[in-house]
Simulated scan of single mutants.
Amino acid sequence: MMKNVRTRKKVRAVFIYLELILMAIIVIYPVMWIVGSSFGSSLGLANASAIPENPTLQNYRDLFANTSFPRWYLNTIYVAVANMFFGVLLSTLSAYAFSRFSFKGKKASLLTILILQMFPTFLTAIAVYMLFLNFGLLDRLTGLIVVGVAAQLPYNMWLLKGYIDEIPMSFDEAALIDGATRTQIFVQIILPLTRPMLTFVAVTQFAAPWMDFILPRLLISSEEKKTVAIGLFTMIDDQTRNEFTLFAAGAVLVAVPTILLFVFLQKYLISGLTAGGEKG
């Protein structure tokens, strides 16, 4: 009987490891293919491969010397950093207000925010375009920041609110008795205790502009204001200009900032994800 149980456990473990290996291959191979293609010696998609025959750095040199990639990159970093800063600031302040204060219309506001986060941002693309046209924000990076912060604010606010709700009110009460102000409580108690979740929100806010394509494509038109997503798309968007390996080199460089953030903030990200699953 015990032998049969051990056999079933071993068989189950084998199937689990086989599944994990298969999933790893499915996830890792496309990444290897893009990285390998970026070192390819030809520009076309037909000759791209995970292991190029004659690897070269020429695609990376051409990317910086013959395209506006450096400008696109700096534009995206500017949007990503601003999006992260204002997104974290506004979502944290609003989450703290909804978690710790009682005011008229609180439940209705929370319900409205919950409903708003269910709609994809691109569904409001035409309305956003008309608003930006009227306010003079078309073809401006400021407009992308406004859209990025507003799009993610409902979800991040709910995420942080659920986390702050689990922080005992006794901390606030004890600090108030000691003469602390609400600002001091927020800065010295709430922010340190919500650091894991704040890190998670900050990374997601930073990563969003690197992957966003639809709204920048709609709102940005000039070459000097393009983000990397739009700029790289122009390399493969028509039949007369098929620079796939150049596109692959740009895609590799696009992933670098987000990867570095995930590596250096891994501890806080795991804590934030775990806490979000338990408390959110």
Rank of each mutant, 00 (worst) to 15 (best):
R8Y: 07
V11L: 14
E19H: 00
F39I: 02
S41P: 04
A50K: 08
E53C: 00
N54M: 07
N59C: 09
D62I: 09
L74V: 13
T76P: 03
V79P: 02
A80Y: 02
F85T: 07
G87A: 08
S94M: 14
F98H: 11
L110E: 13
F119T: 10
P120G: 08
A125R: 07
A127L: 13
Y129Q: 12
L133T: 15
N134F: 05
N134C: 00
F135D: 00
G136R: 11
L138Q: 01
L138C: 01
D139T: 11
G148H: 04
L159Y: 15
K161D: 05
I167M: 06
M169Q: 11
M169T: 12
T183Y: 14
T183I: 15
I185C: 01
V187S: 06
T194H: 03
P196G: 11
M197D: 06
V201L: 13
V203G: 02
V203A: 04
T204P: 00
A208Y: 14
W210R: 11
I214Q: 07
R217A: 15
S221A: 11
S222V: 11
E224P: 00
E224R: 12
K225W: 05
F233I: 01
D238P: 00
L246F: 09
F247I: 08
A249H: 09
V256N: 01
L261F: 14
K267W: 06
G276P: 08
